[in-house]
Structure formats: C-alpha cells, structure tokens
Amino acid sequence: MTTRASLDKQPQEVASMFDGVAKRYDLTNDILSFGQDRAWRAEVAKAVDARPAQKVLDLAAGTATSSLPFTRTGAYVVPCDFSLGMLRVGKQRHGWLPFTAGDATRLPFRDDVFDAVTISFGLRNVSDTPAALRELYRVTKPGGRVVICEFSSPTWAPFRTVYTEYLMRALPPVARAVSSNPDAYVYLAESIRDWPDQPALASLLQDAGWSKVAWRNLTGGIVALHRGFKPQER
C-alpha cells in the first residue's frame, strides 16, 4: 500500500495516501497548525459569502469539515473529493451531505452549475493545477466566484526561514506522534515548499479565465486566500 505520494502527484498515490489518514486527519491538522486551521476556515467562509439557496462546490472537501460553515448559511453544498476513504469517514459523520467522488481535473458536473466554488488545502495535491482551475471555471455560473485557501509563502523573510525549518524538521516528528501515517506529512511539508507563491498562483487563475483576481495573506502569509470571478456573459 502506498503511504506517501511523490511530488509528481499521481492521483492514485495521493488518493491512497489520504485514504490512510482519513480517520485522524482533522485532529492531526488541528495539532500541526496550532489550532490555526479553524481560523483559516472561518476566513474562507467569509470570503465565499454563501447565501441561502446558492449552490457551493467544496472541492477536496475530505471529511467535509470545510463544508459545514457553508451549510449554516442555507446554501446547498456539494463536498467533492477523490479520496474514497475521506468520503467514507465524512459520510459516517455527516450523512445528510451529498458527498461526491470526483477528480479536480475532470469534475463530474455540468457547465455553469455553481454560484461559488472553493478548495482549501487541496489544490496543491492536484497533478495538473491549470487543468483544475479551468474545471472550476467551467462548472461555475457566469458572475460566480472562486475562493482558494492554500499554504503559501510568508511575506517576512526571517519568518519564512523559520517556517521552512519547522516544516522540514519539526513537522515530521510531530506527525509521527499524532498521525496514523506520518509519511503523508513529510509529503505535506515537501509539497508546501514546492508550491507557487501568491503572485504565481494569481497568474495561474488569470490564465484559466478568472477575472478580478486578488489575494489576502493569513498568518503572515503561511496561508493565502485567493479569489476570482467568472465574467458575466454578454
């Protein structure tokens, strides 16, 4: 059984890795982020600004912890993930949600369906980022919005150095203590270090067709929120 994905991010490898950490995934993230993941999720909910009866796609939703804030607004939320292990755990916990298995580069939805699409800490694990951004664009209604929450590059250089040291040295031993699959968190650290910075991701969004692209740093740039809009049809 594959326990750790490589940085070429083959979908089967990544899905298998997340299947293996599904049961303790939310708890482990809470510990490794020092509880910051809850604050980040709250900021995502504000940025998505879901409204009653709107359709929201939560891609890479995992166990749907990220989906719950949208349901509280009265929106119709579809949690989508390609890890069947994550979906199974999510369905046990939140059986009323319409969990959907799907690959970010080939989404199982029609064109122009969702008022908002969002992905938190999952775009980094997709094998073809531009293809995923185009797919999110395709399934979004004209005038709709995308919100991406992803690890990014701390803006203050001395802190960036400390942060990188934490990722590569401290995170794996902490993960060994709390995670069912510590090798998955070695991949996590490597994939964060390898990920484009804020302006580079904004450029990828624009290339996929999104307009009015902007970003906001959270926790000094450890995480960045990117937002864009699908232009209204003329």
Rank of each mutant, 00 (worst) to 15 (best):
L107H: 05
W96E: 15
V126Q: 08
V117W: 02
F114P: 11
A132W: 02
S120W: 00
F99T: 06
G102A: 07
L133T: 11
P108M: 09
T105S: 08
P98E: 10
D111P: 03
D112M: 05
L107G: 11
D128E: 13
G102T: 06
L133E: 09
V117N: 02
T105K: 06
W96S: 13
A132Q: 08
P108C: 08
L107V: 10
L97W: 11
F99Q: 04
D115Q: 10
D115H: 15
S127N: 12
T129E: 11
D111R: 07
L97Q: 03
V113W: 07
V126H: 06
T100R: 13
G95H: 15
L123K: 02
L133F: 08
L97C: 08
G122N: 07
G122Q: 01
F99S: 01
R110E: 15
S120V: 06
A116V: 09
A104C: 12
T129K: 12
A101H: 15
A132S: 14
P130T: 01
W96Q: 15
F114E: 12
D111V: 03
V113L: 14
L97N: 08
F109N: 04
A101N: 01
T129P: 01
A104Y: 03
R124L: 00
I119P: 01
L123M: 11
T100Y: 00
S127M: 09
S127T: 11
T129Q: 13
G122L: 06
R106A: 15
V126K: 08
